[in-house]
């Protein structure tokens, strides 16, 4: 591989990651506008979050705790960028390997853990409570989500994301083949994105925004970029698993046109997934942490188990092999 190729490749990767962060900020702005319209308000312009990030990064910052606290926002942002590089966005995949569906599960935990590390280092009791709640919530939604992933792996007979996308394109989207698992995954996604019934870790009125409590100025700007990235990360995860990753044209036959069309379809699909989360977020109050834990280990887990049984029956007894 020549040096020119490497340069082109890395520019493309940087462009994709930059676009992902921009899309995340735009989505957060759209969510604020939609929530405002639901509450019969006018709401901020949809580019409000770009202004917020610019302002935060331009602020002077004089918070001193220790080096772990300084390191945490970088850790979170880098972790979310790494996870985005492993996820196919519109069929284009930057890093890959066999069995990367399992690897992705580990990588997705990195940014959240880095964030928890930094807030723990600030030694604020509110941050400690928030981190504890975030880790408990993670434990709750991972249970149905792992069952859903197991169902997908059994049905499509693969643990590689690119093979999963190919099989979804040639056979049927995951949401058509395994609708029960898709429902469980969407409920788990609500907790993963920490939207309203499950925004327990960052509850601003109870524990003063939880893990974020000591972050301000430039630190908060970095964390806002991190949360913009994780919006795209989590919606793309659902789209890749159940909606074919937005791949409608095969890049092998159509070339560059396929990449552009797939990217646009992917954008439309993650927008739909994000809007579902925003609508639920706008009308629900907040669970307590033990209620969320009970909910996740009861209903979505049962639904996911039924989905797993369906996938097993379809692939083993009925012989449906994509």
């Amino acid at each position: 591989m020549s040096i020119v190729n490497i340069l082109i490749q890395s520019t493309l990767v940087a462009l994709y990651l930059f676009l992902a962060i921009c899309i995340g900020l735009l989505f957060m702005g759209i969510a604020r506008k939609v929530t405002a319209r639901i509450q019969n308000r006018v709401g901020p312009p949809i580019y409000q979050n770009f202004i917020d990030v610019g302002k935060l990064l331009a602020k002077k910052t004089n918070i001193k705790h220790n080096w772990i606290f300084d390191f945490a926002p970088l850790f979170a942002l880098a972790g979310v960028l790494l996870a985005l590089a492993y996820l196919p966005m519109g069929g284009y995949k930057m890093l890959s390997g066999t069995g990367d569906l399992i690897l992705l599960l580990y990588i997705i935990a990195i940014p959240a853990l880095g964030f928890a590390l930094g807030s723990g280092a600030s030694a604020n009791p509110n941050a400690g409570v928030g981190v504890m709640r975030a880790l408990t919530l993670m434990l709750s939604y991972e249970m149905p989500f792992l069952l859903v992933l197991l169902a997908l792996m059994i049905f499509y007979n693969t643990a590689s994301l690119s093979t999963l996308l190919e099989k979804q394109m040639s056979f049927a989207w995951g949401i058509v083949a395994l609708p029960i698992s898709a429902l469980a995954a969407d409920i788990a996604l609500q907790g993963m994105m920490m939207e309203k019934p499950f925004d327990i870790p960052i509850a601003p009125h109870e524990i003063a925004s939880g893990p974020l409590v000591e972050f301000g100025g430039k630190y908060l700007g970095m964390l806002m970029l991190y949360s913009a990235g994780s919006v795209v990360l989590e919606t793309t995860l659902f789209v890749d698993l159940f909606l074919g990753g937005g791949v409608v044209l095969n890049p092998a036959t159509y070339g560059v046109v396929a990449y552009v069309v797939n990217y646009l379809v992917w954008f439309a699909l993650i927008f739909v997934v994000w809007m579902i989360a925003v609508f639920i977020n706008a009308v629900f109050p907040r669970f307590r942490i033990e209620q969320a834990f009970k909910f996740y280990w009861k209903w979505p887990t049962v639904i996911a188990a039924i989905g797993l049984a369906q996938a097993y029956i379809m692939s083993v007894f009925l012989g449906v092999i994509p």
Partner: peptide
């Protein structure tokens, strides 16, 4: 803050802690 006078249209939102506020 709420729907009668809605200050969020100017980008003014309440924050929880002094570290985050301007």
């Amino acid at each position: 803050m709420t729907s009668r006078y809605d200050m969020e249209r100017f980008g003014i939102i309440p924050m929880a802690t002094p570290r985050q506020a301007d």
